[in-house]
């Protein structure tokens, strides 16, 4: 009886589908976090179409398009990295993952130049120069007076949404760097258990079996002199030093990265292509 219980306790439970459900749930919360901002965008854009139009004129479509291509490509290499690790091609996976991180970095550098150029021209929320500039627009007849708020709201939302998105790019890059480090490290797996209770161990022994039921190793029988048992061992998993843990972590990071891409797919036309 007690030997049976101990055997069950050792049977380790790794639920990859569960991990994926958890990750998707987290992505949903991210979608709704951005959802609040998209709602504001939807409402204000419907209210101030001309104001948004004028704001959109100040964004660089070329730079935006380049960043879109960079992110789409990074999504591809992320997916390829997972495909590679599923096939046990660890080197290839590491290459694709590094490339993805590089794409993320390039995106952020572009974003930096884009933002700093605008801030240099005093186009940022709360800037008095911007308020004056918008007043000029009204005087020149480019924006009807009642649409003036739209220009200011456009820039508020532009900075908020691309800023929050940029923050997510950074977080994604950090997560990928962690996975990369994990993949580059010596790939042995290390386990520790001490789930046994003293009473359960009386008269039992610890046995290590391979999947066919062949005994690989067994311990002495435990008697009352044994106080407690810690099990700890290391092994190199097949195939080719890739452990399933690696790909569930990689896949979840990938999911996050694709979400960052998804949000940009919407941000790009909504901000850059409305002029």
């Amino acid at each position: 009886m007690s030997a049976h219980a101990a055997e069950l306790a050792v049977h380790e439970h790794k639920d990859y589908t569960g991990a994926k459900i958890g990750m998707w749930m987290f992505l949903f919360t991210e979608v709704l976090l951005f959802g609040g901002l998209f709602l504001l965008y939807a409402v204000y854009r419907a209210e101030y179409p001309q104001g948004f139009h004028q704001g959109g004129l100040h964004l660089d479509v070329f730079l935006g398009a380049i960043n879109t291509i960079i992110l789409l490509t990074s999504s591809l290499t992320m997916a390829l990295s997972i495909a590679a690790i599923q096939r046990g091609q660890k080197g290839l996976a590491i290459f694709f993952l590094s490339f993805t991180i590089l794409c993320g970095a390039t995106f952020m550098v572009n974003k930096y130049f884009e933002w700093s150029k605008k801030i240099h021209h005093k186009i940022y929320p709360g800037s008095e120069a911007l308020a004056k500039y918008v007043d000029n627009m009204v005087e020149e007849g480019k924006v009807p007076p009642q649409q003036k708020s739209g220009v200011l709201l456009f820039f508020s939302l532009y900075y908020l949404m691309t800023g929050l998105h940029g923050l997510h790019v950074l977080v994604g890059m950090i997560a990928m760097a962690f996975i990369l480090r994990k993949l580059l490290k010596q790939p042995f797996v290390h386990h520790r258990w001490n789930p046994f209770q003293k009473q359960e161990l009386q008269g039992c022994r610890l046995v290590l079996e391979d999947p066919n039921g062949q005994t690989i190793w067994k311990s002495e029988t435990f008697d009352e002199t044994v106080k407690h048992v810690d099990v700890e061992f290391q092994y190199y998993p097949a195939p080719k030093h890739v452990h399933p843990d690696d790909y569930v972590a990689l896949e979840n990071t990938g999911l996050y990265w694709h979400l960052v891409d998804l949000i940009w797919i919407f941000l790009f036309p909504l901000f850059y292509l409305i002029s």
């Binding site: 992320m78 891409d261 998804l262």
Partner: peptide, 12 residues
Amino acid sequence: AAFKSSLVLLYF
């Protein structure tokens, strides 16, 4: 954008 994102969702 919706079409693009469904491609990302379904395949990537």
